[in-house]
Design a binder for these strands. Structure first.
Lengths: 334, 334
DNA sequence: TTAATGACTGTAAGCGCTTACATACTGCAC
DNA sequence: GTGCAGTATGTAAGCGCTTACAGTCATTAA
């Protein structure tokens, strides 16, 4: 069953069938309807491979992330897929994990699949650590446009959509200080651009308030409820005073809430807590978690729109920013 | 840059290059290495479309789910993708939402993309409601194998991996009753096969204990923390007695925990709560939520393995079952 | 020596589509 | 009637690959 069969049935040439299939204008209404009814009768579907061969596109975008089961990334992937589909594109999902070599390998794999573009979701793809080489992304961008969602990298054919993490953390920290906080603890989970921006926001807020953070107030840690709880418990046991926790991911903030519960520390009176990403988790704890909304949906949809613009040859800004909001719930005084 | 360039560079025919590319045995080591080094020098990548045209496969599997941002489905999708990749297959993600027409539409869309098979993740694709027609799946299966993860449908070329939901809910309910529960409330979220199986488990446990559930003990409700909380609050306000909550999704169980907190109902002493899916949410509440582990990972990896078997022409059982476990935490007495 | 075998390599025919180009036809101004 | 523009359709050349089939060559058995 191919275009030839349809052409025979409709009594026209394959070129005409192809024209009808591709919405080309130069076909008379009579011919068009003959072809369409032949297509319907034969229940014909164009062979996508042959079409791809001719057009050299499959209308497919690769979505890469480290781990699509992570609450935040799952949302980002979801919104990206939905938006892509609304533009008539398919989404090829590729989860790399955090291993650097895997990221490289899978990126070139996607390249070889001739997707039309690639969306890298999550900050984990670009590291600000000078020991980590980001050139694999820059090289890949020479073959097709790459959009970084929540990551920043300068390069030809690379476009970024970022959340203004620094200022979100800055203002949240400033509000904490304003409400009387003296010793906030900050949990960060990655050394990506975005991760470093958040950390910088925290540092700046402290220094603008004339505070110098103790090393123990800054803790790098994996996204894991008990990791955060354990760290705070350790501080508590060694009588290290702290009166607020700010985390770059909600799961760590949940850990802080659990710590407070276990040690009967009153939230928010004795300990204020702010999470990041405003995920489902924020609604699960008691008291409910104040959290910075990093606008995943807006981030993802913007990324896809940008990509569509680039693919249709329009020029778009290389860096695009989305504003984060603090969603106040019950773990903050203000 | 194509296979012809490589063949010229290596001084062999394109057939030989193709043989090397496809790991065909009948190539001498000398020729093979000549070809390989030509490939490396030219940095050649085979054109996937042309290959697809010849082989009529893209080594791609469609993963369909209603909503990949849902915690449970996100995990299922993640494990499916990982397993597929380990078999050298790509994953085309397609989120349909709950709309029936969308499901139909997207399924036929995937069909036209000539994926090699389709994995339907989540129970929402098959309804046991006789008003809902499932034949679109059966028809699609005539074109390529379809695997249902956590759903059941009988049909040619359709394979199912299910969790023994009925017995998991049955035994959990029985344990609740054994521990003194008189009036458990059950929340269910869908009328899919899996959803009905769970409900049946609840009903059977009650009737085997000589109890007849009040209508109010069975509540159909969307996956939403406050929906569950509100319903329980309503029961509470009209003085409808209940001493346990069993939910077909953790989010609803979290709602129950929140209800208990707000009304100072002691958990588990006055109210025992069991969730389903053993998701991150179960670790967020205080007390932590006992939850039935529906073994997403096992479900997904089994589904993919089955599909791989089918694709390589082996015969596999049409219905495969995975055993669920109750993970005991702090919302149950036992 | 000859023929048969087996290992290796090349030739060329597709796969089903798109599209540049060629052709046919129509209507209209002159 | 002639010429021309414009519209509608057909022809055929790819796109880059796989693979059946046809060699070629060296080795071995008869």
């Amino acid at each position: 069953m191919n275009i030839y069969d349809v052409s025979k049935k409709a009594g026209v040439s394959i070129a005409t069938v192809s024209r009808v299939l591709n919405g080309n204008s130069n076909v008379s209404d009579k011919t068009r309807s003959k072809v369409l009814s032949a297509i319907k009768e034969l229940d014909y579907t164009p062979n996508i491979f042959a079409r791809g061969l001719g057009l050299n596109t499959m209308k497919t975008i690769g979505i890469m992330c480290t781990d699509s089961s992570d609450t935040y990334l799952a949302n980002a992937v979801y919104y990206a897929e939905q938006t892509l589909r609304s533009f008539g594109y398919d989404a090829l999902l590729c989860c790399t994990g955090n291993d650097y070599d895997n990221k490289r390998k899978y990126l070139s794999l996607l390249l070889s699949k001739r997707v039309d573009g690639i969306i890298l979701v999550g900050s984990q793809f670009v590291s600000s650590d000078p020991a980590i080489d980001n050139t694999y992304i820059i090289e890949a961008a020479s073959e097709m446009p790459i959009i970084l969602v929540n990551g920043y990298l300068d390069g030809e054919n690379i476009y970024c959509v970022m959340c203004d993490d620094r200022s979100a953390v800055y203002s949240s920290t400033a509000k904490l200080i304003e409400s009387g906080v003296k010793k906030p603890v900050y949990f960060y989970t990655s050394t990506s651009t975005s991760g470093m921006n958040k950390l910088q926001g925290f540092r700046d807020a402290l220094s603008d308030a004339g505070m110098t953070p103790d090393k123990k107030q800054l803790h790098l840690c994996t996204k894991n409820i008990s990791k955060a709880k354990d760290y705070l418990t350790a501080l508590y046991n060694e009588a290290f005073y702290f009166d607020a926790v700010l985390a770059s991911d909600d799961s760590l903030a949940v850990g802080a809430v659990k710590f407070a519960y276990e040690h009967s520390v009153k939230v928010p009176d004795e300990l204020q807590i702010i999470g990041y990403n405003n995920s489902v988790l924020a609604n699960c704890t008691e008291p409910e978690l104040s959290s910075i909304d990093s606008k995943v949906e807006q981030l993802s949809t913007t990324a896809v729109s940008l990509l569509m613009q680039v693919l249709s040859g329009n020029s778009v800004p290389k860096l695009n920013t989305v504003t984060a909001d603090l969603i106040k719930r019950k773990t903050t005084k203000f």
